[in-house]
Design a protein around this nucleic acid. Sequence first.
DNA 1: CATCGATGTGAGTCCGGTCTCAATCCTAAG
DNA 2: CTTAGGATTGAGACCGGACTCACATCGATG
Lengths: 369, 369
Amino acid sequence: MNGEGARRRDVTVADVAKAAQVSKAQAARALGNYGAVSDDVRERVLAAAEALSYRPNELARSMNTGKSHTIGVVVGDIENPHFGLATRGITDAAKKAGYNVILVNTDEDRAAEVEAVRVLLDKRVDGLIVAPASSVDTEHLRQVHQSGRPLVFLDRSGGTLDVETVAVDMAKISLQATQYLLGAGHRRIAFISTLRTDAPYRADTVLDSSQIADRLEGMRQAFLADGLPFPEDLVRLNAGDADSIRSITREVLRGPEQATAVVASDGLIALSVVEAIQELGLSIPADVSFLMYDDFPWTRLTSPPLTVIAQPVYNMGAAAAKALIRQMEGLPRAAPAQFTATLVRRGSVGTVRAAAAAPKLGQLAGEPA
Amino acid sequence: MNGEGARRRDVTVADVAKAAQVSKAQAARALGNYGAVSDDVRERVLAAAEALSYRPNELARSMNTGKSHTIGVVVGDIENPHFGLATRGITDAAKKAGYNVILVNTDEDRAAEVEAVRVLLDKRVDGLIVAPASSVDTEHLRQVHQSGRPLVFLDRSGGTLDVETVAVDMAKISLQATQYLLGAGHRRIAFISTLRTDAPYRADTVLDSSQIADRLEGMRQAFLADGLPFPEDLVRLNAGDADSIRSITREVLRGPEQATAVVASDGLIALSVVEAIQELGLSIPADVSFLMYDDFPWTRLTSPPLTVIAQPVYNMGAAAAKALIRQMEGLPRAAPAQFTATLVRRGSVGTVRAAAAAPKLGQLAGEPA
DNA sequence: CATCGATGTGAGTCCGGTCTCAATCCTAAG
DNA sequence: CTTAGGATTGAGACCGGACTCACATCGATG
C-alpha cells in the first residue's frame, strides 16, 4: 500500500476537503455532523476521511465549542481502595455519558488541592468532582463554584458552600454503630483517624473534615442518649504512617483506663490497628472489639471476619458523576439521593464481659460489672 | 470592589494587553515567558494579569505548541488495588514532571481498549501508558507506535511490538515460586486466573496475556527441571466472577487427583479462592497450600498470613511514567530497568501431608507450622 | 410563470494562544 | 556624528475545527 512516511502532521479537515473536492466548510459539516450537507457531498467527504484516516483534533474542537468533554477528579489518594472504587464509579458513569476523566491526587494536602483545581480549570475541564481535603478552608472551591463551573463534592461536604454533595449520613451511621458497641457493654471506645489537627482532640475542636466531625458527633450523641460520658481521651487523630498508628493503638489499649473497643476510620488504618492488636497478643473480639469504616472484600477473610460500616462507594462515585453531568448540561439539580451506610455485623465485636475474662494485660477491663 | 458580574467569557491575553496598554504579542510574551520583553512591559502586563486574574487557556496553548502535557493511562480496572497502586506511581511521576493523567478503564476488553486509545489520541495526549488487554491482538497499539506517539506498556508486553515495556520477569519468579512449592512436596499445583480463553487450557494454547503465559512457562520449567509432569489439568483460566472462582476452587480441590496447592493469579481471585477453601472446611496450610500474586497489606492479617509474590507495583508505575516522559522529550530510551518480583514466605504454604511424615521435608515451609 | 421557503455551499471570521517578520529603538563602536 | 547590531515591539499569520453570512439552487405554491 502507501508508504506511511507518516511522521508529518495530522490530517485535518482541510486535507479531507481537498481530497473530497469540496470546501473546508462542507467537509467540516459532514465530519462534524452538523448543518446541511447533501448526500453526495457527505459520502465523498466520509470516503476521503476514511481513506486519509482522518481523526478530529478534539483540542481544536474544544476550543470553539467551549466543551472539553472532560471532567476533573480530585481525590486524596487513588491508592486507597476507597477512592479506587469511587473513581471506578465516576469513570464508568462519565464514560457512559461521553466524558473522560483527569485524575489528580492531593494526599489530603490543601495546597496540592488548590494547585490541582487550578490546573484542571486551566485545562478547561467541563466540571469538577472533589473530595475536599478540608471542609473549612475552601476558598479555592468557592471561587470555582462562583465562576459557574459545575462542581460536586464527594464524601465530604464543603462546609458552608452550597455545592451539591454526595456522601452518606455519617452522623447517623456512627450513632448506630456506637449504640451497637454500647449495647455490647463498651464504654471505653477509641476512635483512630489520620485526620491532621493542630492540637489533640477536645470537645470544642473544629475539625477540618466534615466526615470525621460527623462521626464523632454521632458517637457523642450515642453516649449522651445513654447518659454516659463520651471518652474524648480516646479520640486519636493525627495518626500518620503505619508505625504511628500502631503506637497509638498500643497507647489506647494500655493502662488502667484502656479502651475495650477500637474504631478505625478507614481501611488503611484498620490494617495497622489490627496488626498492633495481634502484636500485643490480644485477641479479637475476646480481648478487644474492633470496628472499621468501609467494607473491603478482605475483611471477610480475617479470623474473625471484621465488623464494618459499609458504604456504597461505587454508587456514590457514579452518582457524583451523574450529578455533575446533569449540572454541566444545564439541567436542574435532581433531588439529592441520600446514601446510607450499613453496619455489617461480622465477628469482631464482642461483649465486654468476654474481655473481662481475659487477664492478659492486667486490668484489661476496668469496668465495674 | 468590582461587581463580579462574572458569567462572561474568560479573560484572555488580549484583555490583559489592553489593560496593560501593550500589544497582544507583548502581553503574550510576558505571560508565556518567552521572547524578549522589557522590564517595564513585563511588570505592567503581570500586574494587569493579576488584577484581571488572568488564567491561560491550556487548550489554546496546546493547540499550537502541539503539546497537551497530558498522558493517557489505559488499565484494566482502577478498582483493582494492583492498578490503583500502579496508577499512583504513574500520577506521582507525571505530576513531578508537569503532566496530568487521563485515566480509562477497559475491563480487559479489547474493544474498549481500542476505543480508549482512539479517544485519547483524539484528545492529543502526549503519550500513552497501556496495560494491554491482549499481547496478541495489538494492531491498534501498533498504529499508535507507528504514528510516532510515545507509548509504554505496563505489566504486559505487546507481543511482537518493539515498545518499551515495564514489567517484572514473570517466568523467573514463577519458576522460583514453583520450585518452592515443589520443594515442599507439592506435585498437584493449581493455577487460577480470570484470563479469558476460547478453549480450556492445553500445552499449546496461545494465551492472550504475556503475563499469564510467562507464569505458566515458569511453572512448566520448574516441573521439567525436576523431571516431573506439569499438571495441565489444574490450570484453570476463564475464572470470572466470585462464584465462578469459588466453584473452580472446589473443583480442583476435589476428587482423587486433587490439588495440594493453589496459586491465585491476583488479589481479587485470591479472595474468592481463600473463601472457597474456608467453606470447604479445609485449613491453610495444613490441608491446602496457598500462594498468590501481589502483596497487599491485608495478606498479613489472615490466619495464617499469606505467602505471596510481591511486585514493586508503585515503582513500576512510576518507572513507566518516567520512561514515557523521556520518550516524549525526545531523549534516548534508558537502559530498561528490570523489575524483580520477590517471593514473600509467610504462612500459607506448608508441606504436603503425605510427605509431612518424611523428616527431611519437615521444615521446608518455614517457621509457621 | 413569478415567488417563497428550505436546503446547499463556499468564503471568511473566530476561539485564545504562539510565533514569524519587519519595523523601531538604543547604545556603543568607528 | 554615523552606523552596525542587538533589544523591543506590533501586526498579522496560524493551529484545526465550528459557525456566521451571503449567495446559489430547487421544488412547490398560487
